[in-house]
C-alpha cells in the first residue's frame, strides 16, 4: 500500500488507458493485409492499464484529496474504455479523438499536448499496450514533458517530505529501487496493484461523471506499416509416446537430431 508523510494532502493523477482487442480473441488479417479484421473482435481496457488505474485510485484514496483523470486517444468507441475507468473510480475522463497508430512517439506527442494543460503530479501508464506491444509511450511522454520517469514499476509510494516517489522496478535479474522527484511518469506492471472490480453503484455513477472530448493534435505517424500477416503455422508436432517410457526417445531426438541439449 502507498504510504507517505503528512504533508502531501492532494494529488492529481492522470492515467492513460487504451482500448485493445481482448487477449482471448483470435486475430484475423483484414483484406488488403494491413490491418486486423475488426469483425467479431471484443475489446477491453489494456490489462496493464488496469494496474495503472488501480495504482492511481489507491494513491488518491490514501492521500485523501485530488483527482484521477483517465485519458484515452482513440475513436469514439474508446468512450467505453473511459466509462469503465470512471466506473472503477476515476473522477473524470478525457477522450482525445484521433487515429491510433503503431508509432508510439506520435501517440506520446498527442498525449503530451493534452496533458500539458492539466496540472498533475503523476502520470501513470501501462508498461505496454498488448496490441502493438511497443512498450514505449511512457518514457517518450516523460522525455517530451521533461519529467522524471520509471518504467516497469511493480510498486511505488509517494514520499511527501521529498516531493518524490519511491519505486520498485521489475527488471531482468531482480528488482531495482529508485527515487524520482515529482512530477513523474510511471509505467506500471503487474505487482502490488491487483485491479478491483466495478460495483453496480460505480457503474451507475460513471454515467454522470464528466467525460470531455478534445480533438487530437495532428501528428503524422512515421512508422509505415507495410503489411500484417499471421505467423507461420507451427508444423504439426510429433507425439513421442506416453509416460516415462517415452523419455529416452525424447532425449535422443533433442540431442542427436536437434543438437539442443
Amino acid at each position: 500500500m502507498p504510504s507517505w508523510r503528512e504533508d502531501v494532502r492532494k494529488v492529481n493523477i492522470i492515467v492513460c488507458v487504451k482500448r485493445v482487442p481482448d487477449t482471448g480473441t483470435r486475430i484475423r488479417i483484414a483484406r488488403g493485409g494491413s490491418a486486423i479484421d475488426p469483425e467479431g473482435l471484443r475489446h477491453v481496457m489494456n490489462p496493464y492499464d488496469e494496474f495503472a488505474l488501480e495504482a492511481g485510485l489507491r494513491t488518491r484514496e490514501a492521500v485523501g484529496e485530488g483527482e484521477v483523470t483517465a485519458v484515452s486517444l482513440g475513436d469514439a468507441q474508446s468512450e467505453e474504455t473511459l466509462r469503465a475507468a470512471l466506473a472503477l473510480g476515476a473522477d473524470r475522463a478525457i477522450l482525445i479523438e484521433g487515429t491510433v497508430t503503431h508509432d508510439g512517439l506520435a501517440t506520446a506527442k498527442v498525449l503530451a499536448s493534452v496533458i500539458e494543460e492539466d496540472r498533475a503530479e503523476l502520470i501513470l501508464l501501462g508498461k505496454k499496450a498488448v496490441d502493438d506491444d511497443q512498450e514505449q509511450v511512457g518514457p517518450m511522454l516523460a522525455t517530451l514533458l521533461g519529467w522524471s520517469c520509471a518504467s516497469a514499476v511493480s510498486q511505488f509510494e509517494l514520499e511527501g517530505g521529498h516531493g518524490s516517489v519511491r519505486c520498485a522496478r521489475a527488471v531482468e535479474g531482480g528488482t531495482q529501487y529508485v527515487r524520482l522527484p515529482l512530477p513523474s511518469v510511471l509505467t506500471i506492471t503487474k505487482g502490488a496493484f491487483e485491479p478491483r472490480f466495478a460495483s453496480m453503484k460505480g457503474i451507475m455513477a460513471a454515467k454522470r461523471k464528466p467525460l470531455e472530448r478534445r480533438p487530437a493534435k495532428a501528428v503524422a505517424s512515421r512508422l509505415r506499416l507495410r503489411s500484417l500477416e499471421l505467423p507461420p503455422e507451427r508444423s504439426g508436432g510429433e507425439f513421442i509416446g506416453e509416460g516415462a517410457g517415452a523419455v529416452p526417445e525424447l532425449v535422443r531426438i533433442l540431442r542427436d537430431e536437434e543438437g539442443l541439449i
Partner: peptide, 23 residues
C-alpha cells in the same frame, strides 16, 4: 529488447525525434 534496452531506446527516440521499433 531488455527492460533496460527498451526504456533507453524509447527515451533516445524521443530525444532524437524519431520513431522506434521495439522487439
Amino acid at each position: 529488447a531488455t527492460s533496460q534496452g527498451k526504456d533507453l531506446a524509447a527515451r533516445l527516440a524521443a530525444r532524437l525525434d524519431v520513431p522506434l521499433a521495439q522487439e
